[in-house]
Amino acid sequence: MGTQRLQQLFQHKKEKLLSIYITAGYPEIDAMPKLIKLLSDKGVDFIEAGMPYSDPLADGPTIQHSSSIALQNGMNLSLYFKQIAQVRQEVDLPILFMGYFNQILKTGIDKFLQQCKTAGIDGLIIPDLSPEIYQAQYQQIFEKYDLGLVFLISPTTLDERIQLIDELSSGFIYVVSSSATTGKTGGFGQEHLQYFEKIKAMPLKNPTIIGFGIDSADKYQTACQYANGAIIGSAFIKALSADDPLKNAKYFIDKIINAAL
């Protein structure tokens, strides 16, 4: 399957795509399959399944915290792939691996990508793999596997570079909403909207999805006016932290989806 699920999704749905980020192993070790099943049932369009990392450089306090709890809970790569494979039997929405490059490098790139394929992962988001290094050293290996690869752009990314990132990305382009680590709250200002406007006007081959700091139904809807959809991460992780995470997840997603109707 691989990129096929992603392509099908983006062919059939061009707007208001909703993606949710979860940290595997948080809040409980076996939460991920249940959450993915629930999110799929609720109509979420695709999942970013985060593999917790000891040193998540691009993440703010919420995802750092969920990552360290998940690692304490005993999450590891072999269990991660096992849980993905398990839930893949029940859901058909695209699932992307989100993690840091060292996790892939240490496993061995070929072995890691093969494990992704086997488990039913459709693509990868690797925030610390830069396009330049990817092109120079890793593109050939990645292209052997039919997996989407999503690169990020930020408000400081120059237009020329956005073109390069569009060329290298397969799946979608991850539009980071502001110059900040994940989970920064606050509304969108003029400068955010101008940046979204600019991206919207660019002729890109990939769909665009806005993420980082999308913490409310309002911001999700605003993002959807400028891009094909949005990703909610830290705000969802925060909602899980109270007792009965599944119930909280349901409540959170209902709020987002109902507001979008």
Partner: peptide, 20 residues
Amino acid sequence: QLGFYGRYGGAFIPELLHKN
């Protein structure tokens, strides 16, 4: 050119740091 000493080095940075 990419900041490698042999196979070591480079700049494995999130896009957010690229400009700087």
